[in-house]
Amino acid sequence: MARRPPYRDQGLFPSEAEIARRLSQDPTDWMAKAIVLERDGLPRIDPLMGARYWPAVLGYWSRRYGLSHVEVSCLDGQENLDVL
């Protein structure tokens, strides 16, 4: 994999080596781990941008460790605005 200019690692689509660094992983180990984690929902490399979307990567880890959750809303009955 060709080395990207350093400024490219500061944006929303950092290189795999930069993602490994941010996650305190060895870049070689990260490549193997990423394959396994993609099966669990880690965002895949965007084909157009050539990298993973960093906010989505953070979201994946937050969900994995229970730091974010989305409650599914369900209808609880017909609205009655005359009550007000």
Score class of each variant (00 low, 15 high):
Ile19Thr: 12
Ser24Val: 12
Arg21Pro: 13
Arg3Lys: 14
Pro14Lys: 06
Leu12Asn: 10
Arg39Val: 06
Leu23Phe: 12
Gly66Thr: 15
Pro6Thr: 10
Gln78Ser: 05
Asp29Ala: 15
Asp29Tyr: 12
Ile35His: 13
Ser15Gly: 14
Glu79Ile: 07
Met49Pro: 01
Phe13Gly: 04
Gln78Lys: 07
Arg8Thr: 06
Arg39Asn: 10
Ser68Met: 08
Leu58Met: 04
Pro27Thr: 03
Leu23Ile: 10
Tyr7Trp: 08
Leu81Asn: 02
Arg39Ser: 13
Tyr65Arg: 15
Glu79Pro: 04
Tyr65Cys: 09
Leu84Ala: 04
Leu75Lys: 06
Ala34Val: 00
Arg22Ala: 14
Arg8Val: 05
Glu71Phe: 02
Pro43Phe: 10
Asp82Asn: 08
His69Cys: 13
Cys74Glu: 09
Glu38Thr: 11
Ala20Arg: 07
Ser24Thr: 12
Ala20Asp: 00
Val36Trp: 00
Leu75Trp: 04
Met31Ser: 15
Glu16Leu: 09
Pro55Ser: 05
Tyr7Thr: 10
Asn80Val: 06
Leu23Asn: 06
Asp76Phe: 02
Ser24Gln: 13
Val36Pro: 00
Gly50Ser: 08
Leu84Ser: 02
Ser15Tyr: 08
Arg22Lys: 15
Asn80Met: 03
Arg39His: 13
Pro43Cys: 11
Leu81Ile: 06
Ser73Met: 07
Ala51Tyr: 01
Leu42Thr: 04
Leu12Gln: 11
Asp82Glu: 06
Pro47Met: 12
Arg8Tyr: 00
Pro27Gln: 03
Ala32Leu: 00
Arg4Tyr: 13
Leu75Ser: 15
Tyr53Lys: 03
Leu12Ala: 10
Pro43Gln: 08
Gly59Trp: 06
Pro14Trp: 03
Thr28Arg: 14
Ala2Ser: 12
Leu75Gly: 13
Tyr53Asp: 02
Tyr7Cys: 07
Met1Phe: 00
Ile45Gln: 04
Arg52Tyr: 14
Ile19Cys: 10
Arg22Thr: 15
Leu75Met: 07
Leu84Tyr: 04
Gly66Asn: 11
Ala2Tyr: 00
Ala34Lys: 01
Asp82Gly: 06
Asp82Lys: 02
Met1Arg: 10
Arg39Met: 09
Glu71Pro: 01
Arg52Lys: 15
Ser24His: 12
Gly59Phe: 04
Ala56Thr: 05
Pro55Arg: 11
Ser73Tyr: 03
Cys74Phe: 02
Pro5Lys: 14
Met49Gly: 01
Val36Cys: 00
His69Glu: 14
Gln10Ser: 10
Pro47Gly: 09
Pro43Trp: 08
Glu38Leu: 04
Phe13Asn: 10
Val36Ala: 07
Ser15Gln: 13
His69Ile: 15
